[in-house]
Simulated assay, not measured.
Amino acid sequence: MLLETARLRLRRFRPEDAPVFAAYRSDPAVARYQSWTAPVPPESAAALVRKFAGGDPGQPGWFQYAVELKADGCLVGDVGVNLHENRMQAELGFTLAAQRQGQGYATEAVWAVMRDLFEGRGLRRLSAECDARNLDSVRLLERLGFQNEGRRPANTWIKGEWTDDLLFGLLASHWRKAASPASI
């Protein structure tokens, strides 16, 4: 286990996570604003899970945390961190199974990662971006203290259409001002 909250464990992916990973990432509602196309074939999910399992959260590049419920060990989503070469800033991404949304799990998981990056590793800045239509992600980022830093109109060609991207950022100096989620 790498990180823990009141209800969640954020850990490395394991081979046995592949079927659940494939299931939630194959949900068209979950994939709608993401870079992948549903469904995610089992062999692709297994390859991604193997790749994620071999990652190093302390090295530059993407590291994907598996998010599981402490109560039953069920995999409910993932949080990605793209650590910059300078190890002072990172980009965040997150995905949660549709049936687990609206229960505060994404907020709790992303908050745990933010706390580790700012307080544990001393990063200076975090960023995130999302499709401007993804209002749930926008609200989550704002709830966690991220500031909307801009909009790139018709910036991303994805799934047969041009989409607007919203850019978010949070400086370590503003971290302490951000309200902690009540569930933590």
Results as ranks from 00 to 15, higher is better:
residue 146 F to G: 03
residue 89 Q to R: 15
residue 57 P to G: 09
residue 59 Q to D: 04
residue 47 A to N: 11
residue 114 M to K: 09
residue 93 G to R: 02
residue 125 R to Y: 10
residue 73 G to V: 00
residue 77 G to Y: 00
residue 107 T to E: 11
residue 130 C to R: 06
residue 139 R to E: 04
residue 39 P to K: 10
residue 92 L to Y: 07
residue 71 A to H: 00
residue 107 T to Y: 08
residue 53 A to N: 08
residue 89 Q to I: 05
residue 115 R to M: 01
residue 138 V to A: 00
residue 70 K to A: 06
residue 137 S to A: 05
residue 34 Q to M: 15
residue 118 F to D: 01
residue 78 D to S: 14
residue 85 E to F: 12
residue 162 W to L: 15
residue 167 L to E: 03
residue 159 K to H: 15
residue 59 Q to G: 04
residue 115 R to D: 13
residue 132 A to I: 12
residue 166 L to W: 08
residue 81 V to N: 03
residue 36 W to A: 06
residue 41 P to V: 14
residue 150 G to L: 10
residue 144 L to F: 02
residue 169 G to R: 04
residue 115 R to Q: 15
residue 151 R to W: 03
residue 156 T to Q: 11
residue 99 Q to V: 12
residue 85 E to H: 14
residue 102 G to Y: 08
residue 38 A to E: 11
residue 148 N to M: 12
residue 97 A to D: 09
residue 140 L to S: 00
residue 91 E to Y: 06
residue 33 Y to K: 02
residue 134 N to R: 02
residue 139 R to D: 00
residue 129 E to H: 13
residue 61 G to H: 08
residue 147 Q to W: 01
residue 37 T to G: 02
residue 161 E to S: 11
residue 110 V to S: 11
residue 93 G to T: 08
residue 34 Q to V: 03
residue 31 A to S: 08
residue 170 L to K: 02
residue 145 G to L: 01
residue 169 G to Y: 07
residue 97 A to F: 06
residue 101 Q to F: 15
residue 128 A to R: 09
residue 159 K to P: 07
residue 143 R to I: 01
residue 146 F to M: 01
residue 63 F to P: 08
residue 109 A to P: 12
residue 126 L to N: 07
residue 120 G to I: 07
residue 49 V to I: 13
residue 36 W to N: 10
residue 77 G to H: 03
residue 102 G to H: 14
residue 54 G to E: 15
residue 122 G to Y: 04
residue 35 S to M: 10
residue 94 F to T: 11
residue 34 Q to Y: 06
residue 61 G to A: 05
residue 40 V to D: 09
residue 77 G to L: 02
residue 147 Q to H: 13
residue 27 D to S: 05
residue 147 Q to L: 13
residue 38 A to L: 11
residue 29 A to P: 03
residue 95 T to D: 06
residue 170 L to Q: 14
residue 102 G to V: 10
residue 72 D to P: 00
residue 70 K to M: 02
residue 166 L to K: 05
residue 135 L to D: 04
residue 68 E to G: 08
residue 125 R to M: 09
residue 27 D to P: 08
residue 60 P to T: 07
residue 106 A to N: 09
residue 107 T to I: 02
residue 74 C to I: 02
residue 152 R to V: 11
residue 111 W to H: 15
residue 70 K to P: 08
residue 47 A to L: 10
residue 99 Q to W: 12
residue 134 N to H: 15
residue 138 V to D: 03
residue 100 R to K: 12
residue 51 K to L: 15
residue 127 S to V: 13
residue 121 R to L: 03
residue 58 G to N: 14
residue 88 M to L: 14
residue 37 T to I: 12
residue 146 F to P: 00
residue 79 V to L: 02
residue 55 G to Q: 14
residue 83 L to I: 08
residue 41 P to I: 13
residue 159 K to W: 10
residue 110 V to Q: 13
residue 52 F to L: 06
residue 49 V to G: 09
residue 72 D to R: 01
residue 113 V to A: 07
residue 96 L to T: 14
residue 105 Y to I: 10
residue 112 A to M: 09
residue 51 K to I: 12
residue 135 L to M: 06
residue 135 L to S: 03
residue 113 V to Y: 07
residue 81 V to C: 11
residue 116 D to V: 01
residue 116 D to G: 02
residue 111 W to P: 02
residue 46 A to C: 12
residue 44 S to H: 11
residue 63 F to N: 04
residue 144 L to I: 02
residue 147 Q to S: 13
residue 111 W to C: 06
residue 71 A to L: 07
residue 142 E to V: 07
residue 137 S to V: 00
residue 105 Y to R: 05
residue 107 T to W: 10
residue 143 R to G: 01
residue 149 E to L: 12
residue 170 L to A: 06
residue 33 Y to A: 15
residue 64 Q to A: 14
